[in-house]
């Protein structure tokens, strides 16, 4: 029962390594270096990176900015609640509110064009989950995350909330259209 007992030799640090161990350590070290390298590599050459652009913002201020966008660019409303569908111009600032238990408003973007998407929550934490692409971001109240998104396929997407936000969490789902 040797691992349960103190090492037999007083000085065990100088015991030689078996080649199995040595070879595996070298392989594992090289692989770890590759794993590490991939992240900065993707920042330079990949097209899917979070921008790190973030601000503190109050719920009122974020609502106000969203409302301004909605007033300008609403093209129609949908559902019984008459949720506005917003079609903002390319390159503009697009706001999306997460709140109990709704994403607001509905967004309509154009394929291949870029938008500055602002995400924030008004109350609890929420999870932005774009389906079926499966892009998932944390939405935190008091903070605004800004990312530039470029849709690459037209169609009707869903936005699911995937951070537990109370009893209506599973009803928090919305659409996003790409033309």
């Amino acid at each position: 029962m040797s691992a349960l007992l103190p090492p037999a030799r007083r000085v065990w640090w100088k015991e030689p390594l078996d080649r199995v161990e040595l070879a595996w350590i070298l392989i594992a070290f090289a692989w770890s270096a590759i794993l590490f390298f991939m992240m900065p590599y993707w920042h330079v050459f990949g097209k899917q990176n979070l921008s790190n652009e973030a601000y503190r913002i109050s719920a009122e201020e974020f609502t106000k900015r969203t409302q301004t966008m909605v007033d300008k660019y609403t093209v129609r409303t949908e559902t019984d609640e008459k949720i506005p569908v917003v079609h903002p111009p390319e390159g503009s600032d697009v706001y999306l509110i997460a709140r109990l238990w709704q994403w607001w408003p509905l967004l309509e973007l154009e394929n291949g064009k870029s938008y500055r998407l602002h995400l924030s929550a008004l109350d609890y934490q929420h999870g932005f989950s774009l389906q079926p692409s499966n892009i998932n971001l944390q939405v935190v109240p008091g903070y605004e995350m800004v990312i530039t998104v470029t849709p690459n396929q037209a169609g009707s997407y869903s936005i699911v909330c995937n951070e537990y936000c109370g009893i209506g969490h599973h009803k928090m789902v919305s659409r996003l259209y790409v033309k």
């Binding site: 000085v11 640090w13 100088k14």
Partner: peptide, 17 residues
């Protein structure tokens, strides 16, 4: 050789310490 290197007076290497 191991017998002789396991003597009680051999200094403990820093990493082992």
């Amino acid at each position: 050789q191991n017998e002789t290197t396991d003597a009680d007076d051999e200094p403990i290497p820093v990493m082992q310490q």
